[in-house]
Write a protein that binds this DNA or RNA. Sequence first.
DNA 1: TTCTAAATTTAGCTATGACTAATATATCAG
DNA 2: CTGATATATTAGTCATAGCTAAATTTAGAA
Lengths: 140, 140
Amino acid sequence: MEQVKLSQSLEDYLEMVHMLRLANGIARVRDIAAALKVKMPSVAKAVIELKKLGLVTQEPYSGIELTSEGALVASQILNRHILLKSFLIKLGISEAIADKDACCMEHILSAETLEKIEEFVNAPNEPAKKSKTAAKSTKK
Amino acid sequence: MEQVKLSQSLEDYLEMVHMLRLANGIARVRDIAAALKVKMPSVAKAVIELKKLGLVTQEPYSGIELTSEGALVASQILNRHILLKSFLIKLGISEAIADKDACCMEHILSAETLEKIEEFVNAPNEPAKKSKTAAKSTKK
DNA sequence: TTCTAAATTTAGCTATGACTAATATATCAG
DNA sequence: CTGATATATTAGTCATAGCTAAATTTAGAA
């Protein structure tokens, strides 16, 4: 439980491994590269680092697996992402932008800020002040 | 008006030049280093970059000045900082943490998100639901 | 005025994280 | 089974951004 301290970049790679495994059952170098808009050698290097840190394993030339610690850390990051995305959407930001900005914010916010954001997201809801969003309000 | 694209790091240096000039009338290498918690040679290097970009000027061995473009860019960054800090404080985050997190967020958020945050900050204010902020009961 | 201490700058090292080019391996079509 | 193509890896380059150590300049104290 020594709390590995990951760079933003490594957090992104680890999270993407997790997401791809959830979505496809497997996390391939090619797909990670496509999703993060980097080239495959960048992924290969990141995977080497994550292996050194004991967060992933990989048979040569095949998919990337998470260790139990890796899975734990990855899901923490993913949870932050989901929280922040909900938060931004609740502020009225479009889904695409919410996703993109959540992706940056998830690496930098302090625990206190994340807590307060969680409270806000879970709040019963403010009385929709004068909602001029009338039309396609809850478009999701 | 070609919108220089600064790294987060250079944005921090430029903003700090602006803040120190506002606070002290002069931005010295030593003070920038102290404020950003880096060493002086790191500041010197950053200043060289900002000079190349036409955002600051400096007589050798003296304080750093902003060009008119530098002043413009710096105040945009500072305005984002102020906005984000207000926002976080409105969410109930302590001033110190709000300042710190605003400092990270100011470099990464999209225009749309900043707009929505501005709307939120300027909103008439929700009816402080059940304000139990009284005795800092939010031990959580 | 002169000398010492502080501030600034330069030179050069390190780590991160991207890239291209080249190599190695795997997989699939025939 | 074999070869072409896709995927993965390795090697090496580059830029950013930090650092220390050493040199330079400025400024204040004696």
